[in-house]
Design a protein around this nucleic acid. Structure first.
Lengths: 231, 231, 231, 231
DNA sequence: CATGAATGAGTTTTCATTCAT
DNA sequence: AATGAATGAAAACTCATTCAT
């Protein structure tokens, strides 16, 4: 029942160190960005000496990449679970939003890393294109699939599932950014149930076609367009 | 009718220099980010010597701030004009999206600057809090006002205008990012009329209330929920 | 009468700086070797700040290479001139020895650089094979050619000119090393006219064949081998 | 007759370890030079852990010194034996050359160490002057003595035995350097019997005085200078 | 005895900023 | 005003050496 080679004490210790260093790295990279972060500080915050880092990571860049990728993978995993457990498509959308919001709200520094990393990749032409990019695009794959299923099941009207998933992704991203932006108390901070608002907004946006000219308020609908909608 | 002191030749030259330097700064900061950008290169691309920059900007940071703020102001101005010219709220939303998309697509380096700057401000506690932040929040003010007006006029149902404007803002931001992300031809690039898709999505999302449980497809509507909707 | 583009003041200044830096580099590299030499110290000895070096040399290695190559070229040039001016082959050999001895004695630090560089190239397989190596082999080319000419002219017996040049080269190298080794006063320091001794040794070694068994002293010669030599 | 305390098992093991470490050190120091050699690699090549080295050698420098001195002593021993076994002075010279050539050709890395070490001592004023220097000068002592004996026996003309021994030493050194320099196949590589050439060159150089003006080729001798030589 | 993780001093290199011309 | 040579602070990274296990 035990695994054939039980992790030795060293392995455990090594894993622990790596994890602690990554934690520290995420904090410092998040706070300062890649360039302004210093290995000295990362080491200090992890409670080790500068040189020690290099026993675990061969360079600052490697450490950064690993911290980023690990966070993205974790985020992706949590999102996936929550989305898959949702019974309806509406719940899935709400789950997507709240899963990511929750994750980032507990790791504000990581959100910053993440945003900066995406920013860094926008116009850059440097080497490794696929690695990071695929991690990004993977983030919406699950949701996209779920939307497609819901569309087939008649839960929503015919839309481009990928574009829809991206829209939800972007709204979530903006929501999180704003919650972290300037901290709480700022006038522009989203009110607590902005997530619910977004879900409703999207959900209604995905409803049956409304032709141009269709009145937009319930009141107007009641008075003027009942017949049209009934067709 | 003329201004009391007509701009002297020197003033014109100075303005020209500052503008050329800012242009160059935007390009380099956009391409490299703040840290990796060098004054040397900014100077070179502007066709002046390194020391000359310091006659116009007291530090790299100041130059960066000014380049950023100027761009944001310009973007804001263009957006405002286009939004104000739109006859209906739907047109205003479409105008907001296209104005910003067009602007950024012609200045990808600036978009990168902008994104990085926002990222940099998310968790940071460093000094100047208001300046940049107010520029950001200003971006949605006009649209927010327009939405509020449209709401009052019954063009859309009752929503939080600020939250709605932010949603549109975020969707636009995501759209632009994706268009610049990995350049054209990438599988995940938005298809050409994603802007139209977003406008429709939002517009429909802003339509009359649909209660939970309401069927979402036109077909379903026809069959099952006609009575409910008519109430 | 003036050259078409007279060297500008900057060019002169630049050349001067480069030369002063190279001088300093030669001193420090010579004293400490490549690894132990610090840019800090080279800069300090040249009377400039650390960063200034990098305005003239892109890296420590480049600086080292240039210092070495320049010295070798200069040494080669001086040797060539002296050798070519020598009327007889014997004089050429003596000139070769004394030219190099004189050169190195005035630049002991450079000799050390030179020796270390050769040592470093002995077993190494790293990149640039030809550059340095060709400079080394070039050192004996002139002498080799002169020896060949002297041989054709009957000044010496038939020998391998290249091997002979190399032998003279090695003897000179050893002579210099010893003169610099542990400074003056050491018991093993060569006596002043060791150069003359070497010249004679070589010169006699290059004389007409002496068959094995031939008596070696003048006395013996006089008594026993006169007839043989006359054959 | 036996030593008072027979070497214990530990002593043997210790000796073995020290020897293995020295072997490894010689290889790595030879390949990389003192500075670029790492204790890590030396340990690895010796099959022990880094810390273990410090149980046998108190520092990198000490290890280097010992590796060097041991090698020099061994070289010296082998040379001495071969020289002493030579029946004639000519044989002794040939033996000196071949003994050292053979030794170094089997230990190229050590030759590099040796050359670098000598280079390092040329101008340096750092502490330990005598230790290394005496080892170097000892290298020629035996040969010098043998030459002196041969001179007394009339085998060669009157020369400075020390200077002569040094000349042979330098020629040998150059020969070896060239054989290792750039590996085989290079145009400038000495041809196989350069050792024999050197022996002859020296041997002839040590023959009876030839006065200035004396013709140098057998042919010339025959025609022009017979009378002079007979005087 | 042996180990190898941890340390931190020391080195190269970059680049914003200054200032003499 | 404009220049660009000079500066030196700052940061990544290496590696001999130590020491707890």
């Amino acid at each position: 029942m035990t695994s054939p080679t039980r992790p030795s004490k060293e392995d455990v210790l090594t894993a622990f160190r790596r994890s602690a260093l990554l934690e520290s790295a995420r904090r410092v990279f998040g706070e300062c960005g890649f360039e302004r972060a210093t290995m000295e500080r990362i080491a200090h915050e992890a409670g080790v000496a500068k040189g020690t880092i290099y026993l675990y990571y061969s360079s600052k860049q490697r450490m950064y990449d690993e911290a980023l990728n690990e966070g993205l993978a974790e985020l992706d995993g949590m999102t996936r679970v929550r989305v898959e457990q949702a019974p309806t498509l509406r719940d899935a959308i709400a789950a997507f939003i709240s899963a990511r919001t929750d994750y980032f709200l507990e790791r504000r520094e990581f959100f910053r890393m993440y945003v900066a990393a995406v920013a860094g990749h926008i116009t850059e032409r440097h080497g490794r294109p696929s690695e990071f990019r695929s991690l990004i695009t993977k983030q919406t794959r699950r949701l996209e699939a779920r939307i497609a299923r819901g569309m087939d099941a008649g839960e929503i009207r015919d839309v481009d599932p990928a574009a829809t998933a991206r829209a939800i992704f972007d709204l979530t991203r903006g929501l999180v950014a704003r919650k972290l932006f300037l901290g709480r108390g700022a006038a522009e901070t989203a009110h607590p149930d902005e997530a619910e608002f977004l879900t409703t907004l999207i959900w209604d946006g995905l409803g049956p076609d409304r032709r141009p000219g269709t009145p937009r308020t319930a009141a107007a609908t009641r008075k003027k367009t009942m017949t049209k909608r009934q067709r």
